[in-house]
Design a protein around this nucleic acid. Structure first.
Lengths: 251, 251
DNA sequence: CCGGAACATTGACCTGGATCAACGAAAAAT
DNA sequence: ATTTTTCGTTGATCCAGGTCAATGTTCCGG
């Protein structure tokens, strides 16, 4: 499955020629106030809207391939996607998980440093990278938003490095569950971390996030359930019973 | 050693009051063309120069503490510094190594997400964070440079996550040596990676970068020397004899 | 040149997590 | 409803890398 998931040439390029593309209505976009677009006023939004296209992606589909030319960037409207770095022999490390309102792709760079694959069915608002780069260069506020977002991502990535390099399996799983409960609750309208939530992916993906095997991941979860720390009502549901204890374990 | 390494209130704040601070001469700065300042013209440079102060730091000294308020950002003029995330029990993971012309600190954020410590004697051009934030917000070109730099750092961090989560000790050491040979050669005037180079730090620091123990690190290096892959003329010198083989191991 | 401190190497041993393999349970397809 | 497939759990075993301990080496201050 190495073919592009869609034809980038169908995207508006921002040139004088009007390709008649663009999204239907940015103003009513579900992530209008959370995505980087929030920095734009109505006029700018209309302009950027002409450059973007909404696109549906099926779970498992890959938008960008590690090492390949990355002709597009995008905002996530719905669903969850993973950023993956792979070794030649197939080992995979998930280096990022993106949620609605998050930005994906590599502005100002030709090659994608990682693959981007949908973990659930997803919807993205996609831009031709060059058009987006030009637009961003001309709109400091947008660039500022992008900078802040990138700085936040970098902080998150660096803390994940600590987890990967120095934490035990138990600590990794506990940290993961706490972070997920926070990030997933940020999605819905309810604020604050939820004690119960549904993961948008399975055990193997957890393992690929934590730098563990699926067996170790499963064993840790089973053990935590046995100790009453959490419940596992179904494959993907997690209920944290003792948040304080979980935090103590996470370190 | 929790006291600040210098008094941030002595920095110019960019307000109407002239504190008479500032660096001597940005135009002749050693990193003038490589640091983010390269985006500025003479007039802007003079303005920014007034906000900055050169500062010497001794090896081992910490500029910013993880979790503490981070009142400053800086450009590195000389020396090597590390970014460290630590656990309560003392385990450390080095999440970044910065060289001359690199930028340090966390713009647009109050707390430092990691400690910044000098690994060698160093010299930095330091700014009050708020003043710098304001200046950056008013100078899109500077912000653009900062964005590109942050995006590059993020790419690097994510590839390091793959190393930490999925590579064996042997692969980690090989990858480390190759990256160091590239980054260190970028420092001097000679271009291209050097087969021989001097690390600016000891074994424990290598271990903290790779998520290994000092013993495992040492054993890997000794084994590689025994196999003729490299020479270790002194504690900190590394000579890569067989670069191709090293790259094959790194994966 | 000597003595001590910091750093590096080496050895012996142990263990956390990987690996290999079997089984169970849920979901998807027919 | 039944089969098939995919995913998750559990057990047995192994080993890479951690831990503990001793020794060797470089560097620095006197």
């Amino acid at each position: 499955m190495t073919e592009a998931f869609f034809d980038p040439s169908s995207l508006p390029t921002g040139s004088a020629v009007d390709y008649g593309g663009g999204v239907t209505d940015c103003a009513s976009c579900v992530v209008r106030n959370r995505a980087i677009c929030a920095s734009l006023d109505a006029a700018e939004l209309a302009l950027l809207g002409k450059l973007g296209r909404n696109h549906r992606v099926k779970a498992g589909q890959t938008l960008l391939w590690e090492g390949d030319d990355a002709p597009v960037v995008a905002n996530v409207l719905e669903g969850v996607l993973k950023l993956v770095v792979a070794a030649a022999d197939g080992r995979e490390q998930i280096v990022g998980v993106v949620f609605p309102s998050d930005f994906i792709g590599r502005p100002f760079g030709k090659e994608s440093p990682y693959s981007v694959t949908a973990m659930t069915d997803a919807e993205v608002c996609i831009f031709n990278r060059k058009s987006f780069d030009d637009f961003a260069s001309a709109h400091p506020d947008l660039q500022h938003k992008l900078l802040r977002r990138t700085l936040d991502e970098l902080d998150r990535a660096r803390h994940w490095m600590m987890l990967l390099g120095r934490k035990s399996a138990e600590e990794k799983v506990a940290s993961f569950l706490l972070e997920m409960s926070e990030r997933l609750s940020g999605q819905g309208c309810n604020s604050g971390a939820q004690s119960g939530f549904e993961l948008p992916f399975g055990r193997q993906q957890i393992a690929d996030i934590l730098g563990l095997t699926i067996e170790t991941t499963s064993r840790q979860l089973t053990r935590m359930r046995a100790e009453g720390l959490l419940d596992l009502p179904s494959r993907r549901e997690i209920v944290i019973n003792d948040r304080a204890a979980m935090e103590a374990i996470a370190g």
